[in-house]
Design a protein around this nucleic acid. Sequence first.
DNA 1: ATGAAAGCGCTAACAT
DNA 2: ATGTTAGCGCTTTCAT
Lengths: 338, 338
Amino acid sequence: MAKSKSVTIADVARLAEVSMGTVSRVVNRDPTVRPVTRKAVMAAVDRLGYRPNFNARNLRLRQTQTIGLLMGNLTQALVPLAIRGIERALRPHGYALIISDGASDEDVEQEALSTLLDRRVDGILWMPHIRRSAAEARVTPGAPPVVFFGQASPSESVPTAMVEESAALEEMARDLLALGHTELSYIGVGPAAHGRLRRLHPILNELGMACPPNRQLLLSRDEDTYEAVARLLHADPRPTALLFGPHGLVPSALRAIRDAGLQLPRDLSLVAFGETDWAEVLNPSLSVIGVDYLTHAQDAAGMLLRHIDGDDDAPRVIRHRSEYIRRESAGPAPALQA
Amino acid sequence: MAKSKSVTIADVARLAEVSMGTVSRVVNRDPTVRPVTRKAVMAAVDRLGYRPNFNARNLRLRQTQTIGLLMGNLTQALVPLAIRGIERALRPHGYALIISDGASDEDVEQEALSTLLDRRVDGILWMPHIRRSAAEARVTPGAPPVVFFGQASPSESVPTAMVEESAALEEMARDLLALGHTELSYIGVGPAAHGRLRRLHPILNELGMACPPNRQLLLSRDEDTYEAVARLLHADPRPTALLFGPHGLVPSALRAIRDAGLQLPRDLSLVAFGETDWAEVLNPSLSVIGVDYLTHAQDAAGMLLRHIDGDDDAPRVIRHRSEYIRRESAGPAPALQA
DNA sequence: ATGAAAGCGCTAACAT
DNA sequence: ATGTTAGCGCTTTCAT
């Protein structure tokens, strides 16, 4: 490691012929320094190209001005937007963002959390891949504030930014019902899929739609999508409507559908979680349940910041709505057409 | 800021009835400590829930075990993959990743760089949005090692991980030529677009294809795509083949094409930089010039690590190939069909 | 208004 | 094999 001996506050003090304390005061805009000395110090700062060492400062102050982003699965389309949103919330407060990937693996996610903790981040924004209860168990007293985000239900113990999906889900269900669909298959990935299915169930029931357990697909890996969907399409009777977990599964699913010789929406209707620019230009265009992840992540970061500041009035739950956007991929159920 | 008084090495030392030095040695796996004392220290560590303070340690060691990722524009589809690749390279070495977004804005990018520098990252992985010369000027001696990545040409002064596009570009050009296209319009965004156009030009010339300057679109913002493409489609004669900068522009472009009443590939051929899962399921499927950004970023990070280690044999340029993948969106030029 | 000095939590000589 | 101690670069009382 190249330890470039950077210029320190002592160097500046020496050159400006003042004490280190004074330099510190100048750098931190303490108003009690005389303009003259301020000028002198500034001159020395410029001359030496001095940059305060954030880490030394933070050691002294016992904080890091850094928040950690822990993504259970970093390879998701929403990530760039989420990061941008978070940065937007953080920048005005001078916080930096350190990012950690759980790689959809329980052990890695655990280790990623440890990394963040070791570095003494001031707070953590966490979109867990592991089971929620497991995640909750990890946030212990003594640890820095944690905020879950991207969740579909509030957590008892951890402040949560959640995406309210029931309304959109119900709207979708009504729409599909009106189109003659009497059941729906959900295809999701990871532990979160279970929860979503659990929430979907009563909504469908309420409307008199079926949600047959044997026609739901709870995958553990994205890669299994093609095969699993292909298999599902050979069931008898064939499902008429499919709902996909994150939309990242959709391309594989579309290939499976095409390879099975089926056409959307004639033979099958399809809806996916997550809006994307591609949805509208697909042929047929893709119906989605959309979420503004930039705002979501930004607000989650804002909430975390308030908790870090020890603001006891900071909300423990915030909700963002999602929205059903009907496009061409949802159409009349095949039976009706016959 | 809640400064939870964490347990320090001194606490452990006291409990274990050894000196701080010994605790440090145990924690850092110094083999010279007697097993007995090691055991005792470990016990104390567990009992107190001691976690070494990475920042204090790093201050002392004059390094941060952190590298910075500076993305000129973070809202790009390649970002999740790139991050995962980088993490993959970093994790075994215990480095953390701090991420900074330039938001496609010169000032923001500059500021983002400063953030990284202030935090004394050990090295920086930079995919600039600003002009390359400007970026080069920013990496001064005394600053930590920097590696550019995602570049299309090597830098004289800064180690660079580059994506070799000429071969794929030429392959594409030959393909289009064989299909009867005699010219190509490039639509790109940001400063990088200029460079790409400059490289494209001779390749087309060589093959006898035209690259009329007035039919190239160098946008400054993604948002301008729809309008610009729409305008381009009204030119006379209409372009027969379009090449798109990052594929993020494609959805807007497809809308413009559709709204102009044109069809791919009958009226127009289209190729985009960047492979995506959506390309294959689009209708018609999308021809692309694909790059393995995970590997690219991973290798870039590997190169940076070697430079950080002061390895003088570390390469200053590494190249990754890109690959032309012809799909349905590239077809015979309209004139030939008539 | 400024200087002197203690100390944030840790490591690495240097002793013993 | 382990203890002691001097810093890493900074902020902040406490004096003056």
